[in-house]
């Protein structure tokens, strides 16, 4: 019995607590498949998945590719460079071209917010948002939630501190939405220049100091700071940023003793996170990668198997 009423996964916004729980439960099962010797199933045999990446991403793209293959789908990767062609034209034109090839699911990453939603209006298959500009990255939030739930046994009432460049982060937006929906307490910790306007109304507690923001936290989620944003534009220097906001052993002490350390990757060691912490006992960064494949299997399986059934949005 499929009880997931959505045709696309464009964001966490619009998902209910039940929807999220459903996906996480299925992902738990998918973890088992990935841990078996025989990892290939026939769930999506005969179906076609196209990964359409307008922004380069080795990690997310291979995670989606592996997820599709483990479900038995035929997977094709299309990486479209952003530089040489006018972005928008490429998006719609490429989408229409691909649509004519009858894919069953389109996994899209694009540098513009709303790109996945725009594409979903134009194609006749399911669309999974693999990151659109600074808007959302729903599968990342789901894999983070799965990692936390497996370690802590629950999501409600835990304290999650999201630290760093929240302003430019789609991962942060999706996580704030998901964790709030599941009843967690969300904090953001960042210099004011890296927080979006209206952040206090986004369902989070705002901190500008790691010592206060990490106090009693169950989860410390670090965000990547893009290189071009470090030198003077948003923060004065890498040195100053690491001093105040880089996660090291000293700052981590403020969190609970068994707090999880997370990072969506790729990491800038020595900028937002010290190597000893990234590789330390509290780090679940590698588990996040494993959960990524499982969550993406769950998402695609759910969307594709529900395609011919019942009402959908």
């Amino acid at each position: 019995m499929i009880t997931f009423p959505h045709r696309h996964l464009l964001g966490i916004k619009g998902l209910t607590e039940q929807d999220i729980t459903y996906l996480l439960d299925r992902a738990d099962e998918a973890v088992q498949i990935s841990r078996q010797r025989e990892k290939k199933t026939s769930t999506l045999r005969g179906l076609t998945q196209i990964n359409l990446f307008f922004e380069a991403s080795t990690r997310t793209q291979s995670s989606f590719e592996l997820a599709g293959k483990r479900l038995g789908a035929d997977v094709m990767n299309m990486s479209v460079g952003n530089s040489s062609v006018k972005k928008g034209e490429t998006l719609i034109d490429t989408a229409m071209t691909l649509n004519a090839m009858h894919p069953d699911v389109l996994v899209v990453r694009h540098s513009s917010a709303g790109a996945a939603a725009l594409l979903a209006q134009k194609v006749s298959c399911s669309v999974v948002n693999a990151g659109d500009g600074q808007h959302e990255h729903p599968t990342q939030a789901l894999l983070d939630a799965l990692t936390i739930r497996r370690a802590k046994g629950k999501l409600s009432r835990i304290i999650v501190a999201i630290c760093g460049d929240v302003l430019h982060s789609r991962v942060a937006r999706s996580n704030i939405l998901l964790l709030n929906q599941m009843g967690a307490r969300v904090r953001v910790v960042a210099p004011a220049t890296l927080l979006p306007s209206g952040i206090a109304d986004m369902g989070v507690e705002v901190y500008h100091s790691m010592a206060e923001g990490l106090k009693d936290a169950d989860v410390v989620m670090m965000l990547r700071l893009q290189r071009e944003r470090m030198a003077g534009a948003f923060v004065p220097s890498v040195r100053e940023y690491f001093h105040y906001y880089g996660l090291d052993a000293e700052k981590l002490k403020a969190a609970k003793e068994d707090a999880l350390v997370m990072h969506p990757g790729p990491m800038n060691r020595g900028v937002e996170i010290a190597s000893e912490i990234a590789d330390g006992p509290q780090s679940v960064i590698e588990q996040q990668v494993e959960m990524g494949v499982a969550v993406r299997m769950a998402v695609m399986e759910t969307l594709l198997l529900s395609q011919n059934q019942g009402p959908r949005l």
């Binding site: 916004k13 917010a113 709303g114 500009g133 600074q134 808007h135 306007s197 109304d201």
Partner: peptide
């Protein structure tokens, strides 16, 4: 404002 922040714009 808040709306632009949620939309990532």
């Amino acid at each position: 404002g808040l709306l632009a922040s949620w939309l990532g714009l």
